[in-house]
Simulated scan of single mutants.
Amino acid sequence: MKITKIDIYAIHLPLIEPFVISYDTYDTMPSIITKITTDEGIVGYGEAVPDEHVTGETWEGAYMMLKHQLAPAVIGQDPLCFEKIHDLMDKTVYLAPAAKAAIDIACFDIAGKKLQVPVYQLIGGRYHEKFPITHVLSIGSPEKMAQEAAERVEMGYRSFKMKVGTEVMKDVERIKAVRERVGDAIDIRVDVNQGWHNAATTLKGLRALRKMNLDWLEQPVDADDIDAMVEVKAKSDVALMIDEGLHGMKEMREIIAKRAADKVNIKLMKCGGIYPAMKLAHMAEMAGIECQIGSMVESSVGSAAGFHVAFSKKVFKSVELTGPLKFSKDIGNLHYDVPFISLNEKSGLGVDVDESIIKELCQFSCSVDGKEEGNE
């Protein structure tokens, strides 16, 4: 089987309400959808949700890289040869993990459909039956975040990921307001998205939060400052998760060597897709580090890919893949039994993609054969 054509669509996914984190506010989520067709007529879908603050890629840049470099590099290749596909992409382009994930995910979708099994059967088989879904609270006033949390508890949610990362003591007020509103039985995870920058500020915040019974604290310091994570971990009894500080094997080796985190947040858009995500999970497992699968707020395509990885390995203890729940219109039909997710047994990603919605949301598109389909 060979890849014969790759269609690339740059779309804007409409959010129900703005998504606010420490470094940006999103009214829509820019995404790139790949549609890979093979000589056997099997079609697979992939997704890239680049973030210049995290992956180092812009939406426009990732699109152009897929069009001019990555897609041409894999035309004619067998989509089931994952190692070779990644080797070709790595030789063609340095880094660019989200763009590479768009190819990787589509290849796994094809492989599953070819072999008539779900993707998770290709990477270890199904271990988990279901995962609880954590609701993500965007940055807002303490009152607004507490009210939203209370409403979600009524809907059945038992855990929250709080986005903070402004002034540390204002963030403390937000966290205390939510804890007081939902009580001690609800799990609260705090994601700073690097917003506290250094160990000193982070430790100041943690001292003020000593009685808040946090599940864990995620990426409080600048991404490249692994040593600051080491200092925070050594001086605090709150579990520490690394996110933006982990991209690929280079960072994972340093995290393991320095024992810089209790948990790692693996995202397909940061590491390059399903295949490299599994490599990171194996490394973490050998080091006794728990894993989470997170997302860059992806559609049903990218979210399903992340779920297949999470469901296939014991080392994954949590998931944060709630993009489809945040969109007013999605390109696929990934199903949530709120507050749980339980994957189906359909082949490939198990997601039906509506190409009419892709075209509706599309800003520009192309095929690697050079036939323009948009208005670049």
Rank of each mutant, 00 (worst) to 15 (best):
M1F: 12
Y9Q: 00
L13I: 07
I16R: 12
I16P: 00
F19D: 01
D27Q: 14
T28E: 14
T28R: 14
P30S: 13
I32M: 01
I33L: 06
D39M: 14
E40K: 13
V43T: 09
Y45V: 09
E47T: 10
E47Q: 11
V49G: 11
H53K: 14
G56I: 10
E57C: 09
E57D: 11
M64V: 00
K67Q: 04
H68E: 14
Q69W: 03
L70P: 08
A71L: 07
A71G: 13
L88I: 15
D90G: 03
Y94L: 12
A96I: 07
A98R: 08
A102Y: 00
C107G: 03
F108S: 04
D109C: 05
A111E: 15
A111W: 12
G112H: 11
K113S: 13
K113H: 09
V117E: 08
V117M: 08
Q121G: 03
G125V: 03
Y127F: 11
E129L: 01
E129N: 03
G140H: 11
K144N: 11
Q147C: 01
Q147A: 11
A150R: 05
A150S: 09
E151P: 03
E151S: 06
R152I: 00
M155I: 02
M155S: 02
M162V: 10
V172H: 14
E173R: 15
K176V: 13
A177R: 11
A185R: 14
A185N: 08
I186D: 07
I186M: 10
V192G: 05
G195T: 00
G195K: 00
T201Y: 01
L203M: 12
L203C: 11
L206A: 13
L214Q: 08
W216M: 13
E218A: 06
Q219M: 09
P220A: 14
A228D: 05
V230G: 07
E231F: 06
K233M: 13
K233L: 09
K233R: 15
K233A: 09
S236V: 04
D237Y: 10
A239L: 09
L240K: 06
M241L: 13
D243M: 09
G245E: 15
L246A: 12
E251H: 07
R253Y: 10
K270T: 04
I274L: 05
A277Q: 00
L280Q: 05
H282K: 13
M296F: 04
V297C: 12
V297K: 08
E298F: 05
G302S: 06
S303V: 07
A305N: 10
F307Q: 04
V309L: 09
V315W: 00
S318Q: 08
E320I: 01
L321V: 04
P324L: 13
L325N: 05
K326V: 01
F327D: 03
F327Y: 05
S328T: 12
K329I: 05
H335P: 02
D337H: 01
K359T: 07
F364L: 11
S365K: 15
S367R: 14
V368S: 14
D369P: 00
E372G: 01
E372H: 01
N375T: 04
